[in-house]
Amino acid sequence: MSAMFVNIDWYEIWLATLDTLLMLGGSLLFTVLLGLPLGVLLFLLGPRQLFAHRGAYAALSLVVNVLRSLPFIILLIVMIPFTVLVTGTSLGVAGAIPPLVVGATPFFARLVETALREVDRGIIEAVQSMGATTGQIIWNALLPEARPGIIAAVTVTAITLVSYTAMAGVVGAGGLGDLAIRFGYQRFQTDVMVVTVVLLLVLVQILQMLGDRLVVHFSRK
């Protein structure tokens, strides 16, 4: 048994896991903080919505699409000067978070927009008929009604971010992906590869289960 995992330094694995969790938590937080308002804005500017504006919607849509169509591995490298400007380094957890946020925010914003579109227009109309302001419509009706959809969007985004953190290992971000690439791939240490893969798999499973439970809890069906 121990011969099978001869190359494994469990402390190293623990540190890498912690790095992955930090990158995930930090980037998810900023992604939601930036992506939620962006998604709401996309929704409001969309056709036949409260602030329907064809030009502004097209422009914002274009930006989101461009960022989404850029392969993440390229974004990681292109972003390096900007990352250094923001965090002072392009390495480690701090260096990974800006590209992760920029990569995931447009994706998350689109999911939020879709979740908001699922809200019955009649509900918006009903709240309007009560004399609600646009802010009240968003806070008291749109977001609570779309909550299960938004939670599902956060779950999908978190899982996407897990795979992004693994890619960020390529540019020296640390974490489980970095371990898998440096030891598992470059040094042919298959056991390290297996352990990191299993850990990533477990992480994704936990995220998905947590998300599903929250969606069920808030669905009120």
Binding site: G122, I123, E125, A126, A141, P144, R220
Partner: peptide, 27 residues
């Protein structure tokens, strides 16, 4: 001016009491 609808348009995320309280909260 109160308004009621064919498909009721209640907020699924809120209880009956919260739905009824909503216009007052908003006001």
């Amino acid at each position: 001016v109160g308004m009621i609808f064919q498909h009721f348009n209640l907020l699924a995320s809120k209880t009956v009491a919260e739905n009824i309280a909503m216009p007052m909260k908003l006001a």
